[in-house]
Design a protein around this nucleic acid. Structure first.
Lengths: 136, 136, 136, 136
DNA sequence: GTGGTCTAGACCACA
DNA sequence: GTGGTCTAGACCACC
């Protein structure tokens, strides 16, 4: 079963942490298209948070197209993961990469150190269990 | 003169955008150790934001050790940029890299696309005006 | 034979989609007064949905006077389609038209674009006696 | 000042009714780009609903790009109203028009009656810059 | 059983 | 002052 790790002290909203971790599971293939997510009440009980918090996380992911919410049935990983247009993708990647680069510099990390961290993170998504096609 | 670009549509708090951009200037060497930052009132006027917003940004950066705030004198880029211990650095880099990797995947970006974005961001920091030795 | 097209991704309840499509068949004449509708069990099997969902759809349509449900016999298109008094009709049309108009505006559609869409939909009801599955 | 009309008995969620009416005001020009919306608390008090209900309505409209929410400042009509690509627009218009056409038929309304209703609704959006309370 | 909406009220973050 | 998040608990709609 899935495992979630919430930290209330980071300032990052709980529902956002949840979204990030579900996104991670989907990106890594640990959650494959069509897989059912835990029910709202079940997950709320397991994580000791209010059900409405889960509702918000699931709702946002539903809006994003990452998961598919079916009233009365449950929530499922979407069959077609959304693909952004190349232009918007590049734009967004630039922002994220710049943030990483600046913060790495600020910490005194070298360029290879930063690049290796990213290589590791990508490998971790590729490496594991389920058929995530190595997209180039 | 420094130039700041605030965007109110992103949802990112103004004080955070300010911090990011100052950090960027410091990381790229455009702001060198000892350089003075604009005064709070001056910057607030120029950016048409509430002075308390600048206060908050400067305060946080001071807390991080990126800048020195000298009461009655102004704010200056810190002489010694903080260097994190390798272990914490690696930990933090992993978090950032994982976020970038997951979001890249989610957008349908390939691994090289993500790595190139980071290379570009690092190069941009190296490239500019002031001599920051390209630490490999 | 009638053809129904259910889409679970729209957020529109299944029973509502069913009602809409049956209404469409009746309005277009593909289903004429007195025609029998598929049995609940048969339709539930064909569409792979829960029989109670069909029950709900048929029940609501029966309540509206669109179909007649005869216990032990089945469901049939009502002989006399209900005709609303002109005043209530106008009122209801205004609501629907306003919704269409506002949403059209919001999408950036021109007035002729909206009117043409409605003309097309009306023509489609007039034109065919045989089912092309409505996508609404 | 704006006027909102909520009806709890329709089955349409309150936050959706609010969204529809705000959309109506924006589409008609009664709310122009840059205009401030009522604050969440103020509107909640005026409509006697829970603030979180307003939060949800505003949040969704923010996601849609209809309004612009600025933390600590308030909510404002977006400067650039989103324009859908023509293909998606046509698709969506077809669905809405089909619903209107079918329901008009069902009520016993003639084609001109339906078209006139739409013309009226469009004219109402064009004509006035002053609020005529939306009936949706 | 499932998800969706709403309330009352607390506390935090932003400008 | 503004909006954002979370809780506890109720009730409804869907399948």
């Amino acid at each position: 079963m899935l495992h979630f790790q919430l930290n209330v002290h980071t300032g990052v909203p709980v529902y956002r942490q949840l979204m990030d971790q579900i996104r991670h599971y989907v990106a890594s293939g640990a959650l494959a298209a069509g897989d059912a997510l835990p029910s709202i009440r079940e997950l709320a009980r397991a994580l000791a948070v209010n059900p409405t918090t889960i509702v918000k996380a699931y709702g946002e992911l539903g809006h994003e197209g990452v998961i598919d919410i079916r009233h009365g049935r449950g929530a499922f990983v979407a069959e077609l993961q959304p693909v952004w247009p190349a232009a918007r993708r590049r734009e967004r990647l630039q922002v994220l990469a710049s943030q990483l680069a600046v913060e790495a510099r600020q910490m005194g990390a070298s360029d290879p150190e930063a690049l290796d961290a990213l290589r590791g993170a990508l490998a971790e998504l590729n490496g594991s269990n389920h058929p995530t096609p190595p997209n180039s």
